[in-house]
Amino acid sequence: MIDTVLFIICAIVAVVCGFNLVLQKHPISSALSLIGVMSSLAVLYLLLGAEFIAMTQMIVYGGAVMVLFVFVIMLLNAGSEKASSKSWFAQIAGVPLLLAFVGILAFLIRGVLPPLGTVAFGSWVGGTAEHVGQLLFTTYLLPFEIISVLILIAILGAVVLARKEID
């Protein structure tokens, strides 16, 4: 019972924050909305029994990525947006396409997919760090190593790109 209520609350929060992200003028407001979305998503992960992922979500996204975003907004002193008429095609065709997109996906999810079950909190306890670690370091070892190299490259790239500013 309570997981249903929790789901509805978190879903509404996520959607509202998402709308806020799209509709706000100043980037910092959008950044804060994004943090709201991520937090509610973390709760949803917990409801789905994915403890490790929920924690990772909060630490990586909320703790690192969003802080980075806020830093950059502060650094660049990004102001409000100005109107522009260069991308008229996007302005005109965006909403209809998006509505169609959501419509199709909803139809597919409700109609075409085979009947899915329900989510009961606690019915699956296979999402612990131990379980994740076990699979991560055996079957998915190679992608794990590659991901590590990727992070290294990203660090190098970021350092190179942002370096000149220091001179």
Binding site: F7, A11, A14, G18, L44, V102, L105, L116, G117, V119
Partner: peptide, 17 residues
Amino acid sequence: HVPLSWYLVLSAILFAL
């Protein structure tokens, strides 16, 4: 309990946003 399809619909809505 909450049907799983609601999670997927939520995912779709967030993606569209």
